[in-house]
Design a binder for these strands. Sequence first.
DNA 1: AATCCCGGCAACCGCGGATAC
DNA 2: GGTATCCGCGGTTGCCGGGAT
Length: 322
Amino acid sequence: MGRAPCCDKASVKKGPWSPEEDSTLKEYIHKNGTGGNWIALPHKAGLKRCGKSCRLRWLNYLRPNIKHGDFSDDEDRIICNLFATIGSRWSIIAAQLPGRTDNDIKNYWNTKLKKKFMQGLQPYTIHINHHVSMKQQKEQQLLFLAASSASASASSEAAPLSLQHLSSPHHDYYSRHYSGGGGGGGGSSYGSANNSSTSLLSGLLNGSEHHQTMSTSCLDSGGGGVYFDELCAAAATSAHGQGLGMESFVFGGSIINLQEDHHKALLLSAGAGNQLDQQYGAGCYDEVKPPLVSLTGGDDGAGGTNASSSFFYDCSYSNNES
DNA sequence: AATCCCGGCAACCGCGGATAC
DNA sequence: GGTATCCGCGGTTGCCGGGAT
């Protein structure tokens, strides 16, 4: 059975909003609020519009403190970083940019920023070597995009600061345990994408071809924002072969031994991501035996922790130019 | 000057998830 | 637990204006 339409399409007006409609909607919401029901709102306000249309108009144009156009370099950087981390989650990206709407950012990305971003992009291919679910394939595509985007940034003059560190890695093979702040509030897939992209990023920057089996454990406590810088810091540090010993990592001032304190490490990584903001360059990783790569992600420290998903890939990635 | 093409952007559509009943 | 409804999101469409021919 199909879903009932939210309004009578024959009797609602479509197309661009007139100034009169704008002021009617604005006045109504200022006086009465949205009432928590967008479907009923146009009727109450005396508008011949669909509730969804009213909602969109209000959120994107009429509500206070909306900014349009003139994206700053900082905003560009944030958008690029977040896109590389979580993909086209425009609402999450918009949440990091006060006054910007998801639609605005989406349009800006599609029309301008993407081209800027893709300049200098190296062609890479990821080969999935065994059957994976559709969801996993989707994530894999996201990882590819994230890795590609990050690679492009690393070679661009306008590269995000965090990514400018990513060059000439010292080791022949990276197989590490990353811990960084991930995407809070969004669920497991963000954590997966974040951290796997970090791994792929290291690999892509490292050389022409690698084969890994990746086990991605995702921790997410449903907290606040997305902190790609932490991932970059972790990736940057590992790319330069810095940090403490290979058996341990620093997190929030504590030295964590991964072999002995694995569970604690996971909890910490999920709950202390924000501390990496203060310890920007402190990479958090541990070397494990190839071909197993264990990746953990977390959020920005808000709320509790729960393990939300775990899955495996067997994939290789190669630089098509080599 | 007229036409075509293209980029930018506002708005719509359809889907998935959340919630109410 | 099942169904209906609403909300929010991301993808897509289509209009409009400006530049090129």
